[in-house]
Amino acid sequence: MSDTPMEAAPFAEKAPDAPVRVLSEGLASWLLVSPLAILLAIFLVIPISVIVTVSFWGYNEWDFYPDFTFENYEYLLTSAVTFDTYVKTFSYVLMAWAFTAAIGFAVAYFLAFHVRSTVWQVALFLVCTVPFWTSNIIRMISWIPFLGRNGLANEVLLQAGLIETPLEFLLFSDFAVVLAFVHLYTLFMVVPIFNSMMRIDRSLIEAARDNGASPFQILTNVILPLSKPGLMIGSIFVVTLVMGDFITVRFMSGSQSASVGRIIQNEIALLQYPAAAASAVVLLITVLIMIAVMLRLVDIRKEL
């Protein structure tokens, strides 16, 4: 708040005749906060309250009706399916996170420290975003003919004499799912990590070098800790996207794997809205806990 008068001052000097209206501080903060508060209330708080409410309702073949039953949660929390799908989803999250973080960090490091000219940095950064010009689904589906039994990848390997029979695990497998996730979401890591790295004071690196640190020590002791906020923001993106995904898992596993998102999608398709709402609430809580833990590890606000 204290910044506002300072910034407003030059403006007032340029137009001295304009009447300056001073709102009482209380009213001003109410007005400033209300647009966001109203938006959040309409598009976040109300929908989530509806979902929570419906999750306690009952349902039959064609209808769902107000009720107060714990049946949806009871089934959800005791079913082996839920346990299996969460284990599966977590394993996707873990793998997708590890690969996107490693690749994202490497790409950002290259952009920030190896490319010296700003023009090239911007140009190469834009190149990274090129895949985003086509839709998510197209980028994912184009893997299917490529990885198939008679696809390009297998044909090349067969002709090169590296394999004798087509590799079956390339498509409709966990490998394919993780590959698609990494392809789709690495940029969400590159951008924030690159941003963090660009803020690192170059003199810190020189100081480390002057003090005899090896390039590896500089990486682990200087650059990595200072890139942590970016890494964490990217991780939040990747973790939440993968936790809620249903379409990538469906297409790349050939519908053979279940993720939490797919279970919810199935329940909606079968008109079991209350069950879907209960699943959504549990998923929401899980994701919130995960993010809370991640925020504990790095204080993003302090380090931004």
Binding site: E61, Y75, S79, A80, V81, D84, T85, K88, S255, Q256, S257, A258, R262, I263, N266, L270, Q272
Partner: peptide, 15 residues
């Protein structure tokens, strides 16, 4: 037993 069947079906997909 549709509701039951759907639950078992989900087990099949998640297996």
């Amino acid at each position: 037993e549709n509701k039951y069947m759907v639950r078992k079906w989900n087990e099949f997909i998640a297996a």
